[in-house]
Amino acid sequence: MRYPIIAAGLFATSLPAAAQDTPVLTIYTYDSFVSDWGPGPQVEARFEETCGCDLQFVGAGDGASLLSRLRLEGARTDADIVLGLDTNLMSAAADTGLFGQHGLPEVAYDLPIAWDDDIFVPFDWGYFAFVHDTTRTPVAPGDFVALAASDLSIVIQDPRSSTPGLGLLLWVQAAYGDRAGEIWDGLSDNILTVTKGWSEAYGLFLDGEADMVLSYTTSPAYHLIAEDDPTKAAAPFAEGHYMQVEVAAKLASTDVPELADAFLAFMVGDGFQDVIPTTNWMYPAVTPDAGLPEGFGTLIQPETALLYSAAEAVKAREQALPVWQEALSR
């Protein structure tokens, strides 16, 4: 039986070469961050100018899948940094014990909330919203009740694999509490499909498969600025909009801790932050010197911002997830 031996040899060669001159910084992040049009390529080029290292982004599904991937790999993971968790996942992420403290000096964040955490570093933020095409859907519903009563089709993301999906779960929970089940019952016939991640859902919407998609209030800025297309809009909801603060953190097991710290410091500086608005299409955590791009002024500004603290979010998720599953499995 020669095959297994040959195979074993070939499997072994497919592993990355261990000994290399330049240190490698491996960052696990979500898929859209590393896509050609996402922030990944520019961030990589800019950081590599100064770090004398090889920065490697690894796309691992959507935000919540990142955490699962890390739990699967445990302390033997190759990742040095995870970029793309959010406040809703912070508590669960901290509980794994896989993350180390960042040791950054105090940063003057431009976040709508006060930030003080010694593991997680925020890099951008935004509000969740349902996005629609004004040529196909001229009048959008103004709250969840109206959306549920309409015959509009929507695409949402799975809260177990996607941070926007989890954001929507908590949005409904924060706005309706014990009545969340009713809202999901009402929404269930509007939901065309539940995708694993944001990219799949937004792709379905752009292909015309659904009338609305769960995304961000900032998403229309992409169409306006990058495509000169003013037809996409976010629907303001009377309940208020749930907020997302996206964070990164260093793995305790990293073999390049100084490099990881250097990246986190770079991340809250101009070189990273001024890429965010027009590639990740979110609000930067620290507004760059040049300010926000022009099209951002046209975006809706929610009157009420909803957000659970990291500790509350865990409890709210535990409560809301079975309700969501039950309503949608009927």
Partner: peptide, 12 residues
């Protein structure tokens, strides 16, 4: 089949 065509909790 369920992974690719199943639509969330309804078809798991």
């Amino acid at each position: 089949v369920a992974l690719t065509l199943g639509g969330g909790p309804r078809a798991t």
